[in-house]
Design a protein around this nucleic acid. Structure first.
Lengths: 207, 207
DNA sequence: AGCGCAATTATTCATCTGTATAACAGGCGA
DNA sequence: TCGCCTGTTATACAGATGAATAATTGCGCT
């Protein structure tokens, strides 16, 4: 009996790249970078290992693509609510904070994914660029939302406020993702809104 | 010419375990878990790979020892100032917050180290125990410090306050460690104290 | 229907990883 | 000074890993 080859279906380049990226993200999220081997990625994507190098010049490049997508997801999911309605400044900031503190942003797998990529930032300059860009985008949105609030402050205080608010949001995201069963549904959002309100000295809880 | 063996010196068990643990921590911090191979660890510790299995039954156990030490460091460094003097409640909390937001707690290598271990928490139950224990210790200290403040609140609000303060601290720690050049010296501490003050509605900046 | 190209698979390779076992030698006790 | 215990090194091994190359086959085209 001849060892029969795997039957396969030709897919579009986009579909294949996507499947490989998603597979890599899942594996990093679940088991760290060490779990995302070319063979494991290929198996999860339903292809054979060689195909990875057909779409990405190296595994490193696939890793970068996966990290790029994570960064896109983070800002997209946090700012999704902003685009839809024409909310007031307070409601806009409240929506942003709230979205940042509930699934799918708050999610153990996202935290694991983010952590899995973190160490690579020190090594790979291109990864650092991707991170820098994503981080700036997020923080710029937050600073803009804060600046649009009806209250008087100077530029220096504005910067400090943005850093502090960014801090609470990041920290609560961290805790909520690390201890998914440690908080009641909606508790993180509620605490986050209260904290941001206190820091900015403006009531967001009613928005 | 006979290939000459490495000349070596016998060391105490404690010294050797220590050197191996430190070497493992450094490598994880610098290059992630993947960089902490038995050979790399041994080389950095100045010994040969086989010695690792003489002091640890497996590499996994060395990893656990390293993580345990990281957790010890985190709480120790944050709460060091508490033991020394007999400060008032406000000054104690301020010292704790401040210590959590400056080196050596805020440090890119510590963040990388922490991130490098994070994914293992999902896989290894023993690692999860170590983490749970360390996290509880930290948060208990914070809750106690907050509870001792001269102000009136109920238990439910106290919990929310502790979570929020823990959030700011963690978040600012994260940002300061991820972008070591993004903040002026003392800026994080100052912002953290102001934010915690706002959240708890009590002035800590003068303490 | 069938040609031809590129998408996909199969195989191979050099290297690295954790572990196991054997050989050696540093230094303490007599 | 000299055994001898055990800390330490050296060697070996099976499996995994990323990459490279060769072999096939799906399928759009005419």
């Amino acid at each position: 009996m001849s060892t029969d080859r795997k039957v396969y279906k030709r897919e579009s380049e986009e579909a294949r790249r996507d499947a490989l990226i998603v597979a890599a993200m899942d594996l990093v999220a679940e088991g760290g970078p060490q779990a995302a081997t070319v063979r494991a990625i290929a198996e999860r994507a339903g292809v054979t290992p060689g195909l990875i190098r057909h779409y990405f010049t190296s595994k490193e490049e696939l890793t970068r693509a996966a990290f790029r997508r994570l960064m896109e997801w983070m800002t997209r999911d946090s700012s999704a609510a902003l685009l839809s309605g024409d909310l007031g400044p307070k409601a806009r900031l409240a929506a942003f904070v709230s979205a940042s503190l509930r699934p799918p942003v708050v999610d153990p797998k996202r935290l694991g994914l983010w952590a899995g990529f973190l160490n690579a930032l020190r090594t790979d300059p291109e990864m650092r660029d991707i991170h820098e860009q994503g981080y700036r985008a997020y923080r710029d949105i937050l600073e803009t939302l804060i600046a649009q609030l009806p209250r008087k402050t100077d530029a220096a205080q504005s910067r400090r406020d943005a850093i502090a608010c960014n801090g609470v949001i990041d920290g609560l995201w961290l805790e909520g993702s690390a201890l998914p069963d440690g908080f009641a549904p909606g508790e993180l959002e509620s605490i986050g809104l209260a904290a941001v309100s206190a820091i900015l000295n403006i009531d967001l809880t009613g928005a």
